[in-house]
Nucleic acid binder design. Structure first.
Lengths: 151, 151
DNA sequence: TGAGTCATTGAGAAAAATTATCATAAAGGC
DNA sequence: GCCTTTATGATAATTTTTCTCAATGACTCA
C-alpha cells in the first residue's frame, strides 16, 4: 500500500471511464477524458477555478469543467476534500469508501482505507436516536516530506 | 446530554463574547452580538448568503456579516459543517473539539463530544509517516424526528 | 462504414457570492 | 462626556457559478 499513492490513477483505463459514464447514459468525450487526466495527475486536488485555468490550455470552456467535475463526483471518481484554508478541492480517488490524510503544509493527500467507525456509529445511534448512515472523515497533519510542525 | 441541544447557546453570556473579542483586540459591537444571536438560534447552521438575508432586517450590511462570521470562526464560536448539498454552513457551537451528527433530511445538527480516534491516528502515523495533528469528522443520517430513510 | 440522432460543448451573458474601498459612526479608555 | 481608533455600511469591483443556445461530435443502427 505504501507505493499505491505514487502510481496515480492514470492507469484507470479509459474504458472504465466509458463504462461508468454509460451507466448513467452519458457519452465519453475527449473533454471528459482530459478533465479526468488533470485531476488524476494531482496529489493535492484542485479547486474548480484552478481546474478551469489549467484546462484553458486545452481549450475546454469553464462551463464544461463545472459540468464534468459534477459528473465525475456523482460517479465517485472525484471526491470533495477540505483544503488547508477550508476551500473545496476535488481529488481523484478510487471509488468506494475512503478517507484522506491531508498535509497542511504542501497539500499532499493520501488515501486512508482502513477505518472502522461502525461501533462508534452504533453507539451514537443508541445515544441520540439518529439513524446514522455514514460519516465524513479527514485527517490532517504534515506529510513525511514536510516534516513535523516547526516551532 | 440529551437536552443539551435544546437549550441552545443563547445562554452564552454577552460578557463571554466580549472577553473573547477583547482577547484579539476586537470590540464588541451590537452587530456582532446580533450576528451571534442569529447563529446561536439555528439548529441547522446558515450559509453566508442566508445569514446576510436574515440580517437585512436588522440593517446589517453583508460586508459586516462576512467579517463577523470570519471573526466568530477564528474565535471558535462558529464551526464549518457540510450541508446536505455540500455547501458550507456555519454553526454555533461550544468551543473545543467537537464533531457533528447532521440530519440529511431536515439539516438538524447535533454535537458529538465523545470521539476517540487517537489510536487510529497513531496507527496511521506509523503506517504513513504523516505527523497526524487532528481530524475532521462528521456523521450523517436521519434525526429522530425525520425517522429512518424512506423506501 | 456512413448517416442520423441527440447529448455535449463553448462562448457569452447573467446571476450569485465574495472581497475591497473609504467616508461615517460608535466602542472603549480616559 | 471627549478622543482615538476600530467597525460599519454603501458601493464598486472581483471572483465564482449558473444559464442559454447554436454548433459540434459521440454513439447507434443499418
Amino acid at each position: 500500500m505504501t507505493q499505491d499513492d505514487d502510481k496515480r490513477l492514470n492507469d484507470l483505463r479509459v474504458d472504465d471511464l466509458r463504462r461508468a459514464f454509460r451507466r448513467l447514459g452519458l457519452r465519453l468525450t475527449s473533454q471528459r477524458v482530459t478533465v479526468w487526466r488533470l485531476f488524476s495527475d494531482s496529489t493535492t486536488g484542485l479547486t474548480l477555478p484552478e481546474a478551469c485555468r489549467a484546462l484553458q490550455e486545452y481549450a475546454i470552456g469553464q462551463a464544461t469543467v463545472y459540468r464534468v467535475v459534477n459528473s465525475l463526483c456523482e460517479l465517485g471518481f472525484l471526491l470533495n476534500i477540505h483544503g488547508t484554508n477550508g476551500e473545496h478541492r476535488y481529488l481523484a480517488g478510487h471509488p468506494g469508501h475512503v478517507h484522506h490524510l491531508i498535509c497542511r503544509s504542501c497539500g499532499h493527500v493520501r488515501e486512508v482505507t482502513d477505518c472502522d467507525l461502525s461501533t462508534l456509529e452504533k453507539l451514537l445511534a443508541a445515544q441520540t436516536g439518529f439513524a446514522v448512515e455514514g460519516h465524513y472523515l479527514e485527517f490532517y497533519g504534515r506529510c513525511p516530506r514536510c516534516g513535523p510542525s516547526p516551532g
